[in-house]
Design a protein around this nucleic acid. Sequence first.
DNA 1: AAAATCAATTTTGTCGACAATTTGCTCGGG
DNA 2: CCCGAGCAAATTGTCGACAAAATTGATTTT
Lengths: 219, 219
Amino acid sequence: MIQSPAVTVADKTFIQLRNDIVEGEIAAGSKLSEQELSTKFQVSRAVIREAINRLETCHLVERKANVGARVVSLTTESLIELYVIRESLEGMAARLAAVNMTSEDIDGLQQLLSRHSEQVKGGESYYQEAGDVDFHYRIILGSKNKQLINLLVDGLYHLVRMYRVQLGMVGPRVTTAFDEHQHIAHAITNNDPELAELLMRRHIMYSKNNIEAQLNLYK
Amino acid sequence: MIQSPAVTVADKTFIQLRNDIVEGEIAAGSKLSEQELSTKFQVSRAVIREAINRLETCHLVERKANVGARVVSLTTESLIELYVIRESLEGMAARLAAVNMTSEDIDGLQQLLSRHSEQVKGGESYYQEAGDVDFHYRIILGSKNKQLINLLVDGLYHLVRMYRVQLGMVGPRVTTAFDEHQHIAHAITNNDPELAELLMRRHIMYSKNNIEAQLNLYK
DNA sequence: AAAATCAATTTTGTCGACAATTTGCTCGGG
DNA sequence: CCCGAGCAAATTGTCGACAAAATTGATTTT
């Protein structure tokens, strides 16, 4: 898949729906009526079905035969499960990146961190949302493992974003996370795959623990 | 998704096509013509499109807009990439299994290994194909992480099987692999997640190395 | 009143036809 | 002889209608 510039109507509908779901405009757990959506978007049901199929591919909706499609519901368990998978896959991505990133890739990564550094000093919390994603995204691409990239970017990325947006993942982890990013980048620069993987796994595990703690406040 | 007993025509067509692709009856890299398939299976093109969409979901075919769908081509690089992902995810599965498997689960796992033990002593090479899959499958389910299970069983399992069938993964690793399985099971029985993950990762890495060696013979 | 049954309605599944796009070929020019 | 423009055939994308299945609500039975 990988972001191709939406040539067909089904493409546009899919992207629109995906945004609506990730942003929460279509509520988590709600039903996706084909008829309703086809009148809303002024397209045929075939287009809607195609779009829903793709949403299922990136784990944003679940379909049951003869019953229909529902947006996935956001549960604490699923979020934790997701972070465990991220820990595993992005840890591996960091390991691979330490071996496979070119010096240009590494330069770009360092420049990204420099910009983030100024933002953190300046007290901007803009960092958390886009910055964190950017960093992880570069590591994933740096793995140069096409299947891994596809799995993460098209398969889990949007689901992670959906949780972040809708549960409002903020917390006081901004500067801490930035330090962790620097350590990971350092390990990659030194071509130290074991350390890069270890640090990335810890980094994601800390995020997971942080989220678990936040969620337990509501209990 | 997860194996639901094919209620709709598209379900059956999908499963049929999936088998044909995995078994190599539809050649790797070949084009899937919607018209051709719809006449062959005596169903409408809508059904074929639905089936192809699902095949894309489990990474068995790739689609391009206005061009069509092709069965993925089996390259050495992709196979290695796949094993790297397995190493990561199944390693994590073993880690989780060591924590989350019930004593009943563990009993079942031990019984499975006992049966395999007799088969290995008896010199049956039946083991490799079904036995290995069975073992790994139990570990994956033992993780109790629904998203991980879904990712592996519906997403990568069939692709792995496709490679095994079509490249004829045999090799002299039968008894060695069995020993490794026993060690992994032992670590899980002892509730030792770190060791279980380490051993599973090594186990899959050994398989990967073995395959790489085999493939390099042809160069 | 609660549970089971059946019919009406709504929703998804499947179909064939038409529209839009790509592909391969032919033809004309350089 | 090679290359590009344009045309023709084949393929995918989109559509509306019909068939089949599930949900809903009323009715009957216990």
